[in-house]
């Protein structure tokens, strides 16, 4: 069943067309990778889906509901969470306050406390540092916090923008294994990554973006062995 359908999406920044009509689907339970070079339109795609940008045309369907014109703050409670590029944790709030902010749209305190327990189980380090200001965490810890914060809304689909960017190799491994466990726990994942190798390794399917167009798509394992992909994105 399709969790997310994007149809012929076009986005303009002034006179520049950042997305030139892209279409793709994310099915329930899948991990979908969106790969491509800098400026290909990956971040724009995620920002448009989560309502931060308004497309000039096209449609976005979340579980058959048209969310194209719905403002960003209302999309969270429809089951979509977005872990933005650069993590964007609230540096002057504590780790715990950041996590609670993730559950802003939920009113049942007991359920929120349950979710918090579960997030702490997945990220024990966040629990150790729950009273620390988020700005004092390391980059990898901030990424975990951004992910934990997104999980606090109990999303059915999570958009992740460059979660491994700027992290040390150990944290990169850890972040990718966390993405896998988030997926195993039943959350659908749409992942944007420059680290194409790692992204393809954990994804079910992938789409390749080039200057605002999807130029290639298919099974992640097949794409990994595709010669043009190897050359352009995997550095082989």
């Amino acid at each position: 069943m399709a969790m997310l359908i994007v149809k012929d999406l076009k986005v303009n920044y002034g006179v520049i067309q950042a997305l030139k009509g892209i279409s793709f689907e994310v099915n329930e339970g899948e991990v979908i990778a969106l790969i491509g070079a800098n400026g290909a339109g990956k971040t724009t795609t995620l920002q448009t889906i989560s309502g931060m940008l308004t497309p000039s045309s096209g449609q976005i369907l979340l579980r058959d509901t048209n969310i194209t014109k719905i403002p960003g703050h209302k999309i969270v409670s429809m089951g979509m969470a977005h872990v933005p590029e650069g993590r964007r944790v609230f540096a002057q709030l504590t780790v715990l306050e950041n996590l609670k902010m993730g559950a802003y749209t939920r009113s049942n305190k007991r359920e929120v406390a349950d979710t918090l327990e579960r997030v702490y189980e997945s990220f024990p380090r966040l629990k150790e540092r729950q009273n620390q200001m988020a700005g004092t965490l390391s980059g990898g810890e901030q990424q975990m916090l951004a992910m934990g914060r997104a999980l606090m809304s109990k999303p059915s689909i999570m958009l992740m923008d460059e979660p491994s960017m700027g992290l040390s190799p150990i944290y990169v491994e850890e972040i990718f294994s966390i993405i896998q466990s988030i997926s195993k726990a039943g959350t659908t994942v749409l992942l944007v990554e420059q680290n194409a190798k790692k992204a393809l390794a954990i994804a079910d399917r992938a789409y390749v973006l080039e200057t605002g167009n999807i130029v290639l798509s298919g099974d992640a394992k097949t794409l990994m062995n595709d010669d043009s992909i190897k050359k352009a994105y995997l550095g082989e």
């Binding site: 989560s50 309502g51 931060m52 703050h73 969270v76 969470a81 933005p84 609230f90 902010m101 809304s153």
Partner: peptide, 16 residues
């Protein structure tokens, strides 16, 4: 507090 720190991130939390 969230909006004062990061408007876009606040929106992503569901804050109007």
């Amino acid at each position: 507090r969230a909006v004062s720190e990061d408007r876009d991130a606040a929106t992503l939390m569901g804050i109007n």
